[in-house]
Write a protein that binds this DNA or RNA. Structure first.
Lengths: 161, 161
DNA sequence: TACCGAGTTGACAAAGATTATCGAAACTCT
DNA sequence: AGAGTTTCGATAATCTTTGTCAACTCGGTA
């Protein structure tokens, strides 16, 4: 779906949006969002380069959001670090390519657009809104929407601990 | 969105569905779908292991579809080679984690479910159906649905015509 | 048996994720 | 202003995953 990096970026942005006003250092964000500190620094750089956050060096420095969470779609955060792949043209680019492949790629492109639309509609402010009547725990907030036909192989292997 | 491998698998399945009846060899599929032959062999193995295709060794051997394209959702093909990542539980799994992160991951999970639903509804047979009123060329079938804010990274100008 | 083609395996390159290190800017204190 | 601390910025190195290739084995057909 989306990359690990994009998820990290989202976490950091959401945290900053919640803490808006006072700058937060990389170490603080990393600690709060449980993102590897060294890697988070790199992610924050991408965010800073895209002007989503402002960086302030020195004492009492850190990162602050430059945008209003209400007008900042999730998509921008994701695109800043890991743009969603599109199928603008048939990867086969043959002159005598089959039409069924075109249909395939159109479906794939439509799916990508669907995702983009959803991530465009949802803003960072929406992610902060916790008055939704759900459990405080994340692990309980899953709804069964699609029938996972035999795809029970999540495979999270916790090597070490 | 989806991995390169998953896309390759889709191409191969669609091709086999179109050629159903007579087995097709790896070389034939690779040539028709423009997938690297060596890698396609590995992809076909995954498909075979998941019983989506039947493999026949020896002379006049090759791969054939085991399923009816009309009842074979895209999702199964994708899941066979590269299961869609889910967010069943908060990756932070802290006891004192913030609720805004839960909302974030619920959104991500919903997006994953949305994609899965779409790929469940669309069958391989749908990909074969070419009576849709579109151009024969793949590159022209793109609609602007979401505002791509500054995500113009591709920019290839070599559009041979 | 000879030939053909899938199945398996391992090596390898490319991309993604992660850690560590050093340098540059900004603030504080003297 | 100058020294020292704090924090971002950039880069290199490491590790993992993914994608790619090639050689070889196993099985079926003529």
């Amino acid at each position: 779906m989306i990359s690990q990096t994009a998820e990290y970026a989202l976490r950091a942005i959401v945290f900053l949006a919640d803490q808006r006003g006072s700058p937060r250092t990389t170490a603080q964000i990393a600690q709060a969002t449980q993102v590897p500190p060294g890697y988070l620094a790199k992610v924050m750089q991408s965010l800073s380069r895209m002007r989503l956050v402002h960086s302030q060096r020195g004492l009492n420095g850190g990162f602050t959001l430059t945008r209003d969470p209400a007008t900042l779609p999730m998509l921008e955060v994701i695109s800043a670090v890991d743009p969603i792949r599109h199928f603008h043209e048939c990867p086969l680019r043959l002159e005598a390519h089959q039409t069924e492949l075109c249909t395939l790629h159109r479906q794939l492109e439509n799916a990508a657009l669907m995702i983009e639309q959803k991530f465009t509609e949802t803003t960072v402010a929406d992610l902060l809104n916790k008055a939704d009547g759900q459990k405080p725990l994340c692990s309980l907030a899953v709804v069964s929407l699609a029938t996972t036909s035999g795809a029970s192989g999540t495979g999270n292997k916790s090597t070490g601990g």
